Measured scan of single mutants.
Amino acid sequence: DENEERIRAFALYKGIDPEKARELWERGEINKDDEEKAWREYK
Rank of each mutant, 00 (worst) to 15 (best):
G28E: 03
D33I: 08
F10M: 08
I30G: 01
E23K: 06
P18G: 06
W25L: 08
K43H: 12
G15C: 13
K14H: 12
R22V: 03
R40M: 14
L24P: 00
I16S: 00
E36I: 08
G28Q: 04
K43V: 13
D34R: 01
E2T: 12
K32R: 11
E19D: 13
I16Y: 04
E4A: 09
G15N: 10
N31Y: 05
A11L: 01
D34S: 03
E26I: 13
K20H: 13
E26L: 14
R6F: 15
I16W: 05
E2C: 15
A21M: 04
Y13E: 04
G15I: 01
Y13F: 12
E4Q: 08
E2W: 14
E35M: 15
K32N: 07
E19T: 09
E36R: 05
E23T: 06
F10R: 00
E35L: 15
I30Q: 02
E41G: 05
E5T: 05
P18I: 15
D34F: 04
K37V: 10
K43A: 10
E26M: 13
K32L: 12
E41H: 11
E5S: 06
I16T: 01
R27A: 13
E35T: 10
R40H: 12
R6L: 11
R22H: 06
W25F: 13
G28W: 02
D17P: 14
P18Q: 13
R27D: 05
L12D: 07
N3E: 14
E23Y: 06
D33T: 09
I7K: 01
D34M: 06
I30A: 02
L12F: 10
R40V: 10
E29K: 06
D34H: 02
E26V: 11
I7F: 05
I30H: 03
E36G: 03
D17N: 09
R6I: 08
K37T: 11
K14V: 13
W25E: 00
A11M: 02
P18R: 09
E23F: 06
K20N: 08
Y42V: 04
W25M: 08
L12Y: 11
E26A: 13
A38V: 04
E29M: 12
L12H: 10
A9K: 05
L12Q: 13
I7E: 00
E23R: 06
A9F: 08
K37S: 10
D33G: 08
Y42T: 03
R6A: 06
E29Y: 08
W25H: 05
E5I: 07
I30E: 01
E26G: 07
G28A: 04
W39N: 02
A21F: 02
R27C: 09
K37G: 06
E29F: 07
F10L: 14
L24Q: 07
A38I: 07
A9N: 05
E41M: 12
W39C: 08
A21Q: 00
A9L: 08
D1F: 11
I30D: 01
D33Y: 09
K32F: 11
K32E: 11
A38N: 04
A9Y: 08
W39E: 04
E29S: 06
K20L: 14
E4G: 06
L24N: 01
I7C: 03
E41W: 15
F10H: 02
P18E: 15
E4P: 03
I16C: 06
K43Y: 12
D17L: 11
G28D: 05
D1M: 12
W25T: 00
D34I: 06
G28R: 04
E19A: 13
K37A: 15
I30P: 01
E29I: 05
W25G: 00
E23L: 10
G28L: 03
D1E: 13
N3T: 15
E26F: 11
K32G: 09
A9I: 09
W39I: 04
E35I: 15
L12N: 08
D17K: 08
P18K: 11
P18Y: 15
I7M: 05
E36F: 07
K20V: 14
E5R: 06
A38E: 02
K14G: 03
Y42K: 03
K20I: 14
D33P: 04
E29L: 14
N3R: 15
D17E: 10
E26Q: 11
E41D: 11
L12I: 14
Y42D: 03
A9V: 08
G28N: 07
K37P: 03
E5G: 05
I16M: 09
K37R: 13
E2Q: 12
R40N: 13
N3V: 15
A21Y: 02
Y13T: 01
R6Q: 04
N3P: 09
R40C: 14
E23I: 08
R6E: 04
G28S: 04
N31T: 14
D1Y: 13
P18W: 14
Y13D: 03
N3A: 14
E19C: 14
A38R: 02
F10D: 02
D34G: 02
K32M: 09
R22M: 05
Y13Q: 03
A11S: 04
E29V: 07
E19S: 11
W25A: 04
E26H: 10
L24K: 03
I30K: 02
R8H: 12
I30S: 02
A11D: 00
K43D: 07
K14W: 15
F10G: 00
E19L: 09
K37I: 12
E36W: 06
D34Q: 06
I7R: 00
E2Y: 14
R22Y: 06
A21W: 02
E5Q: 10
Y42E: 04
E29Q: 10
W39H: 03
R8N: 09
F10Q: 01
E19G: 09
P18T: 14
E35W: 15
W39D: 02
I7H: 01
D17R: 07
D33V: 10
D34W: 05
D1I: 11
E26Y: 13
N31R: 07
D33A: 11
R8D: 04
I7A: 01
K14Q: 10
D17Y: 03
G15H: 08
E4T: 08
K43M: 14
G15T: 01
R27N: 12
E23N: 05
E23W: 08
R40G: 07
F10W: 12
E35F: 15
E26K: 10
A9P: 00
A11H: 01
K32Y: 10
I16Q: 00
A38S: 12
I30T: 04
E41Y: 13
D34L: 05
R27F: 05
D17F: 04
E19W: 08
F10Y: 15
K43L: 14
A11Q: 01
E36H: 04
I7D: 01
D34Y: 03
R6H: 08
A38D: 03
L24E: 03
E5A: 10
E5N: 06
N3G: 08
E26W: 08
K20Y: 13
A21E: 00
K14L: 15
R27I: 07
E4R: 05
E35V: 15
L24M: 15
I7Y: 05
G15V: 02
I30F: 12
R22F: 07
A21C: 07
L12A: 13
D1P: 11
K43E: 09
D1H: 10
Y42Q: 04
E4K: 05
E4Y: 09
F10I: 15
E35Q: 12
E2V: 13
I7W: 11
N3M: 15
K32H: 10
I16F: 04
I7P: 00
R40A: 14
R22S: 04
P18V: 15
L12W: 15
N31P: 12
E41I: 11
E4L: 09
A11N: 00
K32T: 10
R22L: 07
K20M: 13
Y42W: 12
K14E: 04
A11R: 00
F10A: 02
E4W: 13
N3D: 13
D1S: 12
L12M: 13
A9G: 01
D33F: 09
G28V: 01
A11P: 00
E41K: 12
I7V: 07
D33Q: 10
E41N: 10
E2P: 12
W39S: 02
K43C: 15
R8W: 15
G28I: 02
E19H: 09
E5W: 07
K14D: 01
I30M: 06
E23G: 04
Y13A: 05
E29W: 07
E4S: 09
N31S: 15
G15L: 02
R8K: 14
I16R: 00
E19Q: 12
E36D: 10
A9D: 03
R8Q: 12
L24T: 01
L12G: 03
N31M: 08
I16H: 00
E5H: 09
R8I: 15
E5P: 02
N31C: 09
E26N: 11
P18S: 09
G15R: 05
R40Y: 14
A38Y: 06
I30N: 02
Y42G: 03
E19Y: 07
W39G: 02
G15E: 04
D1G: 12
Y13P: 00
A38P: 02
Y42L: 05
R8F: 14
N3H: 14
W25I: 09
E36K: 04
A9E: 03
L24R: 01
D17I: 04
A9Q: 06
P18N: 11
